[in-house]
Design a protein around this nucleic acid. Structure first.
Lengths: 359, 359
DNA sequence: TTGTATGCGTTATCAA
DNA sequence: TTGATAACGCATACAA
């Protein structure tokens, strides 16, 4: 089932392949007699001509394909990102080559080279390492790269992120407004861009409310996983420092906290308010529904593709970082702290809202 | 940043390009002097030679790319399927081209043609329509296609599915063992292969237990969505036929049932047992945790890729349908029917376990 | 405005 | 065992 070739179209129209080529290509069509152009187009249609992108690519060094590197499609973060990118890419007749890296440097390198050797026109990279030689080298070599979900330290490269800082700000402020003063933070890995950004934002927001972010109420996790989230909360509960609320840097971390809450016979939000981050699918179905920061993943994916396409365009474009708006989604996992009779009792005292009963 | 070409390698090694090509290609390497071969390989390595797949494809008509058509990556079903496929494809140096179709025939056709014109070596198609001209034509034209998640009526084509029938059997039998007799079924679209398969399995299993599948307790939904699931359950509740349990053909449908349960002030599993299908991520976190049929999506994706690769291999292979094992995951949404005092009261009577109180 | 000629980087056929 | 040559399908510099 071979499709017609340019030559066949040309013969059918009674012109030479070069003329046919020009007529078929909108860019060069005006250099050809309108009548012949019409004739060629008619022939092409009648023969069901489809240009062979392989041959074209060999000639033009453009494949109209984009390589996308993500850690793991099975992390609920990524499907909407990928889908957003694919939607705009396909709109512009680009095709997406997708590869998972599991955040494993070797696998990253391998898949990157595989895509590169396939002559993809550009890359969308979703591995959010702050230090990422792969990206640095790619940029150095003049490859077109757009980062999504994070930045690389010290590297000027187009990127799409969300207003993570504002997200954390909203989360913390919400808790403070509810009356919480002792707020714990479950941080994602600080070697990853969103991890450090959110941790920093947490500390700053606390201070801007006149609250001290206590080291004993901050745990930096090794991964964005439920297990790590659970570990963090267990640590807080056994750590001897009172707290009435937890901000998690990610919904999976928050889910881990949920597990510990029921494991320890506590209640949320009665004993402990919890805020997540990302608004993953179905966290509104949890018990209680998770208050969380909604990140516009689909829009981010779409924007990253638009940015890359722009980068690939003729005219030079200045590097920029798009930061998409974010919102706090109020649900059932946050409430005012319960004032239980404690040794001091005052809401603002260091052990106010003392919940040590669940230790 | 151009990579070295074959010609450069040949010159460096002091041989002709054709010799270099032969030396580099394991298939043809034995047709070349061992010493020269070594010399060529050394040159290639020292120049960092990477074959240009575009040029190779133009010549060989093989791209080592696979096109994958899925309805929507944002449906939690598909990420593991895609990931499974990508993992084995990349293992064999194939690259995945991914496209979403939204089950829209026009978009399907467009993306299919786009991938085809890119000369993908084969297709993995995850749109489970029972009647699918696209697939039929592709097969007719001799394209390599593997279906995943469904079959096309009357078409002999390799496919990977799971034992959906057994899954439904287990679900229904589980409910029957718990004592349920009036069991409703929320069916997916019957124009889709998994939809009709599960509906048929439900009816058969009911009959095998000596129970009559009542039309008034079966609703065929238009989509695998929460909204449709909710609509179905509302219909049952307002339909005048008693029932104590619901089997949903999909977890999203089951989620819709959950919504109606709380909307109507009912309890699950107290008033109503619910079984889902698929074991989507996080349904174990629902309240109550969803009893559901676990479908091995990742393994299915991986198997579909293996099958396609085999199909692409040299020796002809007979069409087959791989049906992967499935299991029922018992969680909190199923329990024995509550025996409330009803007009008849007998457990096995037609209105036994009458729960009309929630009408 | 159209045709000629050439090359993109490979592989495959044929001779030597 | 190796080299010369053509061809895959298209785009483009140049000539007409």
């Amino acid at each position: 089932m071979k499709t017609a070739t340019l030559r066949e179209v040309a013969e059918h129209a009674g012109v030479h392949t070069s003329t046919a080529s020009r007529a078929l290509n909108p860019e060069t069509r005006d250099g050809v007699n309108a009548a012949t152009a019409r004739r060629v187009l008619a022939s092409a249609r009648s023969l069901g001509y489809q240009p062979n992108p392989i041959a074209r690519s060999l000639r033009t060094n453009r494949t109209y394909t984009i390589g996308m590197l993500i850690p793991d499609l099975m992390n609920p973060l990524f499907p909407p990102i990928v889908r957003g990118a694919e939607d705009v890419l396909s709109e512009f007749s680009y095709t997406l080559l997708l590869a998972n890296t599991d955040n494993d440097p070797d696998r990253e390198r391998l898949t990157f080279e595989a895509l590169r050797s396939r002559q993809v026109d550009g890359f969308i990279i979703a591995t959010a390492w702050r230090s990422h030689p792969l990206t640095s080298q790619a940029v150095e070599q003049g490859l077109s790269v757009v980062l999504i979900n994070g930045l690389v330290d010290g590297l000027s490269v187009p990127a799409v992120v969300a207003d993570y800082t504002i997200g954390i700000e909203r989360a913390v402020s919400h808790l403070v407004e509810l009356g919480h003063r002792q707020i714990a933070f479950v941080s994602g890995p600080v070697r990853m861009s969103p991890g450090i950004t959110r941790l920093t934002a947490f500390k700053q927001t606390m201070q801007s409310h006149g609250l001290e972010p206590l080291e004993s109420l901050i745990t930096v996790c090794d991964a964005w996983s439920e297990r790590e989230g659970a570990r963090a909360l267990r640590g807080f509960l056994g750590g001897g420092t009172d707290f009435t609320a937890v901000v998690a840097s990610d919904d999976l971390l928050a889910l881990g906290c949920y597990d510990v809450v029921s494991e320890q016979g506590l209640t949320c939000p009665g004993d402990l308010s919890i805020v997540g981050f990302h608004d993953m699918p179905f966290v509104d179905k949890l018990h209680p529904p998770l208050t969380t920061v909604r990140v516009p993943h689909y829009a981010m994916g779409a924007e990253s593709a638009r940015m890359l396409l722009e980068l690939l365009g003729q005219r030079p474009v200045n590097v920029r970082v798009a930061s998409l708006p974010i919102e706090l989604v109020l649900r059932g996992s946050t409430a005012p702290p319960t004032l239980r009779p404690g040794p001091h009792g005052a809401e603002h005292s260091s052990s106010g809202g003392c919940h040590r009963s669940w230790r």
